[in-house]
């Protein structure tokens, strides 16, 4: 009995402490989320934050420097004015091409995603593989093959000439058509996949309810299907517009001097002309512009619910 007494007298003190301090199990687990975040954060820190910082610094280097003589940091904001002066045509063109590409991708991708998700039935998976299949080949190789397809003596040009759609001296390569066609081709899967994901989740019973409540197929689409697939449209347009605006492969391989996009300008400034400050200024401008556009877009069209 005496041996039990200390324990008994100690109990009240322990009892008051329990609510203050979380159980040991919880305390031990608190660091787990951070541990899981750490590798990703580290990766982003080394390969994203640092390079972006470096780029921002480079965009403010003294433009009189060169690779050989070295650059000095000089807060030269004039780089931005110069870059805009020289390349605003390509800059605006890139945004324009990206916009057209996105619109065409929605127009082509939505019916495709709808067909796969709603009407696909047992062919669903096969059709999805069809959408993803191009990724099995390199982006560059695929774009090169478009170059062959659209080439001046290629089958498409011959056929269009035979139909008199193209004049005898007409060509497709080095035109806006070729660049945008390439962009659409390359980014279509990025539109289709998120659209598919949101349409696939759509409860067909909701469409039945709409039909029961006097809504024909077209009205049901605009009042039920489309609003419920908006998260997919949003994701798809972002995944298409952002990379398309910065793309240089399509303009480089399928375009000409009059269809140059900002991506190829940046690439050649960095690697051919070696004009680091201007190239960096263009990169930062492109990044900020896209960031602002996306923020406005999400603010206007974003849906608060995660359907």
């Amino acid at each position: 009995m005496a041996a039990l007494l200390p324990t008994a007298s100690g109990t009240p003190a322990a009892a008051t402490e329990i609510p203050v301090e979380p159980p040991a199990g919880m305390r031990r687990r608190r660091w787990i989320p951070y541990a899981l975040l750490a590798p990703g954060l580290l990766w982003l820190g080394v390969f994203f934050v640092f390079p972006v910082f470096q780029l921002a610094m480079a965009s403010l280097w003294d433009p009189s420097g060169s690779i050989e003589t070295g650059y000095t940091f000089a807060w030269s904001f004039s780089n931005y004015a110069d870059a805009w002066e020289m390349f605003h045509v390509q800059f605006l063109r890139s945004l324009w091409y990206a916009l057209i590409t996105t619109v065409i991708c929605v127009a082509l991708g939505y019916p495709l995603a709808y067909a796969i998700a709603i009407k696909g039935g047992r062919w669903k998976n096969l059709m999805l593989v069809g959408v993803i299949a191009p990724f099995f080949t390199s982006y560059l190789v695929r774009t090169y093959s478009w170059k062959a397809i659209l080439s001046d003596s290629g089958p498409v040009v011959d056929f269009l000439k035979w139909l008199h759609i193209l004049p005898p001296d007409g060509r497709l390569l080095a035109t806006e058509f070729a660049v945008i066609a390439g962009l659409v081709y390359n980014f279509l899967p990025f539109m289709v996949l998120p659209l598919y994901a949101s349409l696939d989740k759509l409860d067909v019973r909701l469409l039945e309810a709409a039909r029961d409540l006097y809504h024909g197929p077209v009205r049901s689409f605009f009042r039920v299907t489309l609003p419920l697939s908006m998260p997919g449209v949003l994701a798809g347009t972002l995944l298409t517009f952002i990379p398309a605006a910065g793309d240089y492969v399509n303009a480089q391989l399928l375009g000409g001097p009059n269809t140059q996009m900002i991506g190829s300008v940046i690439q050649s400034r960095f690697l051919v002309v070696n004009d680091y400050p201007i190239a960096s200024a263009l990169s930062v401008m492109l990044m900020l512009t896209i960031l602002v556009l996306v923020m406005i877009y999400v603010r206007v069209f974003g849906t608060e619910e995660v359907v």
Binding site: A209, D212, H215
Partner: peptide
């Protein structure tokens, strides 16, 4: 006759309310 043309309405077993 198409369902949206019928003077018939349903209270669905699964409710089927429009979430948006």
């Amino acid at each position: 006759m198409r369902p949206y043309k019928r003077p018939v309405n349903t209270v669905f077993q699964s409710y089927a309310l429009f979430p948006h």
